[in-house]
Amino acid sequence: MARAGSVAPRQRASAAPESGQRPGRRLLPRSRILLVLALVAALGAAGFGAWALYGSQWLRIEKVSVAWESGSRRELTADQVLSEAAVPLGAPMASLDKDAIEDRLLAALPRLKSVRVVRAWPHGVGLKVTEREPSAQVPAPGGFAEVDEEGVRFAEIAEPLPSVPLLEPDMADAPSVRRFDEERTLREAVAVAAALPEPLAERTSVIRIASYDAITLELSDDRTVRWGSPEDSSAKAGALTILMKAAPDARHFDVSVPSAPAASGG
């Protein structure tokens, strides 16, 4: 108790922080300066990078090369590919439109199956190309058209290719034309040619197509193979390979039912 007549000492007023709140921190002047300097440095680096990529002469396209993917056929020349690619020499590497170059080449050169455009920093561009392989050839107004395994006609030639089967359709009176038009049947016949092992494909002179269900192979040594429809072509090719080894003197083979192949003649 305070004594009578005495004055109670003043209590210091203190503002206690409310529950759950902490006093805010203020950046010191030095911290603010460092932050501003860091932002300026970052903006400067970004600006310099953009200038180096697009405005300077350091990273410009100076050389374009063409390379065929491993094992790819080579009928086109590097000059043909370079001419149609039209890669802009002297342009910034960063602005190279790879998709546009690929589309341009595939549209201008049907022989090309695929194209890859790659940057070879700091100054080079590489064009990696793959050409289509002919699985068959068909008569065309200018001679013969090469057809790949996908049924794409990609080139016309004056003389037939050796060791590539020639498709000869004769379907005018075939009843199956109502269900399978000639174009579809030709595509299926190309699949037959693509299914043949290379040694057998090289010995196949003609693939004669009377209807969808009546395809016949004529071999270079005057032997014939009744193939039937294009269905189960892989199994038929395997059966024919075994049958020809088992009956080397036979003149006629029938693999229309691959599980029961037959040979005759000879």
Score class of each variant (00 low, 15 high):
264 S>E: 10
257 V>N: 10
32 R>F: 03
73 R>A: 12
79 D>V: 13
28 L>K: 15
64 V>Y: 03
133 E>I: 11
84 E>G: 07
84 E>D: 10
82 L>M: 11
221 D>F: 01
197 P>W: 04
251 R>L: 07
212 Y>V: 13
71 G>E: 07
91 A>K: 04
36 V>R: 12
18 E>S: 14
53 L>N: 03
38 A>E: 13
251 R>D: 03
152 V>K: 00
240 L>D: 10
150 E>I: 14
134 P>M: 01
183 E>I: 11
186 L>S: 03
194 A>G: 05
217 L>E: 01
17 P>H: 09
81 V>W: 02
222 D>L: 10
82 L>W: 04
70 S>R: 15
259 S>P: 06
130 T>Q: 08
8 A>M: 13
14 S>Q: 15
205 S>V: 13
169 P>V: 08
148 D>G: 10
256 S>R: 00
218 E>M: 10
240 L>M: 07
137 Q>G: 05
39 L>F: 14
126 G>C: 08
245 K>N: 02
60 R>Q: 02
43 L>V: 14
65 S>G: 06
259 S>G: 15
246 A>G: 13
141 P>H: 04
237 A>G: 07
245 K>R: 15
248 P>F: 09
64 V>E: 02
145 A>D: 11
99 D>L: 12
114 S>V: 05
113 K>Y: 05
62 E>F: 00
195 A>N: 10
262 A>V: 09
136 A>V: 06
245 K>E: 14
59 L>T: 08
203 R>W: 09
195 A>Y: 00
158 A>N: 04
95 S>E: 12
23 P>W: 05
207 I>D: 01
230 P>R: 00
122 P>G: 02
115 V>M: 09
137 Q>L: 14
172 A>Q: 10
35 L>H: 05
71 G>A: 05
125 V>Y: 02
121 W>Q: 00
181 D>A: 13
119 R>F: 06
59 L>H: 00
20 G>T: 07
173 D>N: 02
6 S>A: 03
101 I>A: 09
93 M>P: 01
50 A>Q: 14
132 R>I: 09
255 V>K: 01
121 W>G: 01
208 R>F: 13
67 A>E: 02
28 L>Y: 13
160 P>R: 08
19 S>K: 12
202 E>H: 09
36 V>K: 07
13 A>C: 06
116 R>P: 06
2 A>N: 13
162 P>R: 05
63 K>H: 13
97 D>H: 01
241 T>A: 11
82 L>H: 06
193 A>Y: 00
129 V>P: 04
220 S>Y: 01
66 V>Y: 07
212 Y>L: 11
113 K>T: 08
227 W>F: 03
